[in-house]
Amino acid sequence: MSPMPFTQPSAGPSRQPAAFRDIAVIANDLPCDSAALATAAALARHHGAELDVVQVLAMPLSAVDAWSLVPDPACVERYAQIREAAAKRALAFQRGLPPLGVEGRVLTFEAYGESPAGIAATAARRADLSVIARPDGPPSDASRVHDVFAALLLESGRPVLLVPAGHASPSLPPRHAVIAWSDTREAARAVHDALPLLASAETVDILMVDPVASFLEDTASFGSVLAAHLERHGVTARIVTETSRGRLVAGVILDRASRAKAQLIVAGGYGHSRLREWVIGGTTRNLFFDTPVPILFSH
């Protein structure tokens, strides 16, 4: 049998990036959950996506003898209270979706001796994007949410959109965006994952802080390869280089985002180990706690 002849397509390849079709909102039983839901709903309306609101219940373990066949009555009562409160939250979320103009469902999981953050990350693998809000209340709340955020970023295999509390009226998709670019796997993944958000932006800055020459680019052409790649996807970007001069890289990124009036930052997350960032700090951690605008992270 002779091979089938190659036929050139009559039309050129589409330059429209794939849209988000399933978005997971990770609820943490905090007031800032409303900011995550509002942001996710705005994206869902734009992309025609459906929402999964995910809540994971940390179920306490009984302190009685592990060999006992009789459940601890106090623990059983506590389970009932946790489930009742979760059911009320789920009903409120479900009733809140139609007014936001989106369709979706509420998924409730129970964690017995397992990491609630890990369960949330597993649930997020079925979505194109997960959205989580950073609280502005007690540091303990922010630390708890940071643990969930880190699990999503490192274990879900999906991008994570971080929304600061108080960002209940998001400008997404963004008119102005900043890409925190470095020649790393994480940053490359973030740019790719952010294409559906960057496609309609009026301005996109490729920001490089203290860039280093490589075999792909010398100092005279920093960012040009990425700019050309984005151009082929219909995204026009301008190149910006900054010198840190002893400042934290996260501070340089946030300063540029402020000057560019960016509604979105795109960044790779945890290029160093999470333990290293926890011990001595790092750009991902600093951006998480300090950003005033949403950030799309990928790992």
Rank of each mutant, 00 (worst) to 15 (best):
P173D: 01
I265Y: 12
A187E: 00
H233T: 11
A168P: 02
A180M: 02
F215L: 14
L152Y: 12
A228K: 12
E186R: 02
A151T: 12
V212L: 12
I239R: 06
F222W: 14
R144I: 11
T203W: 07
F149S: 03
F215G: 03
V212H: 10
T219W: 15
I239T: 03
A250I: 01
G166R: 09
A262I: 06
E186S: 08
L172F: 10
Q263E: 15
A257Q: 08
L198P: 01
V212G: 07
R274L: 15
T219V: 14
D255I: 06
L207S: 02
P164E: 07
H176F: 12
R245M: 09
V212Y: 09
R259D: 04
L264E: 03
H192W: 05
I179F: 07
P170F: 07
L207G: 00
L264K: 05
V235E: 04
L198W: 01
A151M: 04
F215P: 00
A180V: 01
L198G: 00
D147I: 07
P170Q: 04
L197D: 02
P196F: 13
D210T: 05
H272P: 10
V209C: 00
A227W: 02
A237P: 00
V252T: 13
M208K: 04
S171W: 08
D205Y: 04
G271E: 13
R274S: 12
H146S: 13
L162A: 11
V249Y: 04
S200M: 05
V204H: 02
V148N: 06
